[in-house]
Design a protein around this nucleic acid. Structure first.
Length: 271
DNA sequence: GGCGTTGTTCGACT
DNA sequence: TAGTCGAACAACGC
C-alpha cells in the first residue's frame, strides 16, 4: 500500500539500483498506464540515463540527464519496483519495463493498473498544477494549522486529502490520529492548539517510524495501532491480542469514515 | 466466487 | 463559488 513511507523506500531502491545506466528500450504492456504518449516516451527516453530522484508525498520523480526530462511515477494502491537481470523471467505484473543497455531491467509492477508513469518537464509546475500540498515529513506546524483550520469536514478525510498535506493514506491517518489522541470524526475546525501540536508530532513520528522499519508493519513498535489490521505476519501468536488498544487495553473499534475502513480507540480518541 | 481493499478523480449536492 | 462527500474505477487476494 504505497503511502509516503513506501514511496520513499521505492525512491531509495531506484536510487541505489537504476541510476547512470543507458536506457535502450521501454516495454509497455498497457498504454493506459501512461500519462504520456508511448511514442513520445520512447523517443524522449531512449539513450537517456536516470541521474537522481525526488519525492513529494506519494509522487516519485526520476531525473534524467536531460534537465527538462523528468519521469513521474505514481504507485497507486499496489505499485512496486523490481530491478532484475534481463536473463531472468519478467516479474509478475511488470507491465512497464525500462531496459538498460547493461543487461538489467527496471520493472514497474502494476498488479491493479491503478499506477501511472509519464513525462513532465518541471516538478514545481507539476505540483502546482496538481495542487499537491506540502510533504508530510517537512510541513511546519504553522502550515499544517493553516491548511486544516478552515475545513469543516471530519479530520480523517481532511488528512487524506493530498492538497492539505501530501503522503498520508488510510492506515497512516488512523495511526496518526491514534498517536495524537484525536477521534477521526472530530471536525477539523474544532481542533485545539494542543491537538494541532500532537497531530504535527504524530505525523512525524508515524512517517519516520514507517521509513525506519522500511514499511514492514510487523516490525513496528507495539505501541502502534497498525497491528490491529492483521496484515502480513503478525508478531503475535494470539490473534486476539492485537485487537485491543496497546495503551489502555480497550477493544479497538472498527467503523467507516469518509468511505474508508477506520480503526480507533473509543476510550482515548473521543470527539 | 463474492467481497474487501487501496488512492485518485469526478460528479453531485450544499 | 467553493467546499464537501460519496461513488466509481481495476483487479487482485482471501
Amino acid at each position: 500500500m504505497p503511502e509516503l513511507p513506501e514511496v520513499e523506500i521505492r525512491r531509495q531502491y531506484l536510487e541505489t539500483s537504476s541510476l547512470h545506466q543507458v536506457i535502450a528500450h521501454i516495454e509497455v504492456e498497457d498504454k493506459k498506464l501512461l500519462t504520456t504518449e508511448y511514442s513520445t516516451l520512447i523517443n524522449t527516453l531512449t539513450g537517456r540515463q536516470f541521474v537522481g530522484t525526488h519525492r513529494v508525498g506519494k509522487n516519485l520523480f526520476v531525473l534524467t540527464d536531460a534537465p527538462d526530462v523528468i519521469v513521474h511515477m505514481h504507485f497507486g494502491m499496489t505499485g512496486d519496483l523490481d530491478y532484475y537481470h534481463a536473463s531472468l523471467d519478467r516479474p509478475r505484473f511488470a507491465r512497464i519495463v525500462f531496459e538498460f543497455t547493461n543487461g538489467f531491467n527496471l520493472g514497474f509492477l502494476c498488479p491493479r493498473k491503478f499506477e501511472r508513469v509519464g513525462l513532465i518537464d518541471d516538478i514545481d509546475a507539476f505540483l502546482k498544477r496538481k495542487k499537491i500540498g506540502e510533504d508530510g515529513l517537512v510541513i511546519s506546524l504553522e502550515d499544517l494549522i493553516r491548511q486544516i483550520q478552515p475545513k469543516k469536514a471530519f479530520i480523517k478525510p481532511v488528512l487524506l486529502d493530498q492538497h492539505v498535506v501530501a503522503g498520508l493514506g488510510n492506515w497512516i491517518v488512523d495511526e496518526v490520529l491514534f498517536q495524537a489522541y484525536i477521534h477521526p470524526e472530530q471536525r477539523a475546525n474544532t481542533l485545539t492548539a494542543i491537538q494541532f501540536d500532537q497531530l504535527h508530532k504524530a505525523i512525524r513520528l508515524v512517517l519516520e517510524t514507517a521509513i525506519r522499519y522500511e514499511a514492514t508493519y510487523r516490525d513496528f513498535p507495539n505501541s502502534f495501532l497498525i497491528h490491529v489490521r492483521e496484515w502480513d505476519n503478525s508478531p503475535y501468536d494470539d490473534v486476539e491480542a492485537h485487537k485491543f488498544c496497546p495503551r489502555c487495553g480497550t477493544r479497538i473499534e472498527r467503523s467507516e469514515v469518509g468511505g474508508r475502513t477506520t480503526f480507533f480507540c473509543p476510550k482515548e480518541q473521543v470527539v
